[in-house]
Design a protein around this nucleic acid. Sequence first.
DNA 1: CCAGTGTATCGTAATTTTCCGATACGAGGT
DNA 2: ACCTCGTATCGGAAAATTACGATACACTGG
Lengths: 119, 119
Amino acid sequence: MKTIEGLTTDEERAAAIFRALGNPARVRIVLELARQDACVTSDLVEVLPLAQSTVSEHLKVLREAGIVRGGVGREPRYCLEPDVVRWLAKFCFDICCPAGECSCEGESACEATAGCACG
Amino acid sequence: MKTIEGLTTDEERAAAIFRALGNPARVRIVLELARQDACVTSDLVEVLPLAQSTVSEHLKVLREAGIVRGGVGREPRYCLEPDVVRWLAKFCFDICCPAGECSCEGESACEATAGCACG
DNA sequence: CCAGTGTATCGTAATTTTCCGATACGAGGT
DNA sequence: ACCTCGTATCGGAAAATTACGATACACTGG
């Protein structure tokens, strides 16, 4: 893959996270961690039709992208990094609804993301 | 890539869209289309340090993932499909803030996605 | 009809990803 | 110290991605 110069840090980061999530097994892992935080590798191996070594490598990819934490030494359990996922949600959101000029009035997906009880 | 059985349609779709966005050049294209909708291929070739054939193939990947529309026959201009991007934003958002049990009170990224003027 | 322009597709080479089995590593228990 | 269990890493094969130049295709104006 050729390096695109002039890319902002955010754009590079987004591309790296998208790439990490661009695999069905890793989406599954992330959703499993969202459902039940703090899984060990074997929990995830049970859920996936993949060898243990493969799952471990998927976890490594997710960890390097910053999407999950753990799996090292004193912290053997994997956890989701919700801030990173939130950051990504915002990145996507800003694409279709740039700050100050949202044109998606009343559309369902936009409502849903705006409908969070917090904030 | 091995097929993961038992994956929901949404999960497969999300993985496919993530994969399509997991490349800096394609992130750039999407942002360019967000900034200025309805570009022809040559507009994008100018912005990217890539050959015309490569840009065309990136556009094909984005089109097959449903992220952009156009580039065919009577519709030579490419446009973003904002609904798809919004759907993805919601997918990410639901991971960290599942409906009804949002625990990200007052955090900045969550505020930002919730801060859309619509809805 | 023909040339010119812009775009998609083909062929191909280099690189990366994906997956597995085998192996190494580290923490706990005996 | 030794075994065991869970996990990471290595080696390697197969497949997919990325990129380019060359080529084919489609539309437009002369």
